[in-house]
Simulated assay, not measured.
Amino acid sequence: MIEVLKTGFLTSIQDSGRYGHRHHGVPISGAMDEVSANMANALLGNNKEDAVMEITLSGPELLFESDASIAISGAFMSPTINEQELLNDEVYHVTAGSILKFGRPRRGIRCYLAVLGGFKTVRVLGSRSWYSSVTPVDRLSVGMHLPLADKPVLKKKPKLPVNSAHNYNSNIIEVEKGPEFDLLSKHQKAQLLNGIFNIAKQNNRMAYQLKQQILKHSYSILTSSTLPGTVQLTPSGRLIILMKDAQTTGGYPRILQLTDAAIALLSQKSTSEEIDFVLKQ
């Protein structure tokens, strides 16, 4: 078990997502940065579906009540065990009584803590991912106890995935054309694909908004299905990028669709950072 001594800003348990329930309006959820979550799991030889802890902007303080093997990937948040510095993308054996702490991010904004065998929190609708209207809780609280698998020591060196780390300096967000892309005028397409955009302060697990707008429009569509990574265009010309906790339908034109890798990279970017949409070849 792990006891939560401090929660951090927004810390939750996430896995690869909750599928098969979108027709009931249930979001997919899951790790915002699948690339980093998969890396943390792979370092321990876990399955990529195993639940990890997603840590955003500021980290928790955790007391290990039993031995465990851990790995941390994604944003670098100056983790320490008993005040000894840890590195990302390494495996550590933690003994009972140890305290894991995190600082503020120095690269990226989300990191992932994996434990051998995954966190064994309650599974709801086939997933351990926390989401406010589906699971009993949506974030850590002080005094919470998190169950672990009963296998604290890594016995063999796992094979790591290819392309398991981000280029954090890249602002290129790879996209495909959305269902309503061809509603756009030539000028709007040029604005979209030739412009540089900055992330607005309205960014979270549901959606990222962008500061800049493109030309206004009067296009209308019937309410249609959306996915994580769908880029919606409001009548005012504002761009909204749906993320893992987003609604399952929407009435704005769906002009672009981010690739899975682009969603993961975008999730590591914060307010005012630049992004550049590039069509997938």
Rank of each mutant, 00 (worst) to 15 (best):
A51W: 01
S58D: 07
M39R: 08
N47H: 15
L43I: 14
A71N: 06
G20V: 04
S73L: 09
R22C: 11
I70E: 04
L57M: 09
V26P: 00
R18M: 05
A51F: 04
H24F: 10
A71I: 03
V26R: 01
T56D: 11
H21P: 09
G45M: 02
A42N: 07
E65Y: 11
S58R: 08
G59C: 04
D67Q: 00
G20H: 02
G30Q: 04
N46V: 15
A42M: 05
S69W: 00
F64E: 00
G59M: 05
M32N: 01
Y19C: 12
E49A: 14
L62R: 00
A71D: 06
S36Q: 03
H21Q: 13
A40D: 08
H23D: 15
F64D: 03
E65N: 12
H21D: 11
S69F: 00
M32E: 03
K48S: 15
N46L: 11
M32S: 07
D67P: 06
S58A: 14
F76T: 09
M32I: 04
I28C: 03
P27N: 05
F64P: 02
E61D: 10
E49K: 11
D67K: 01
S29N: 04
V26T: 14
S58F: 13
H23N: 14
S29P: 01
P60M: 05
S69T: 09
A40F: 03
L62A: 02
N38F: 09
A51V: 07
S58N: 13
A31Q: 05
D67R: 01
E49H: 14
H24G: 14
N47Y: 15
I55N: 04
L57R: 11
N38M: 13
L63A: 11
V52G: 03
S36P: 04
K48F: 15
M53F: 06
I28D: 02
G74D: 06
M32A: 04
H24R: 15
N41I: 10
A51T: 07
F76S: 12
E54V: 09
A37K: 01
I28G: 04
I72H: 02
I28T: 14
G45F: 01
M53L: 14
G25Q: 05
A51Q: 10
S73C: 12
G30K: 13
P60G: 09
P60I: 03
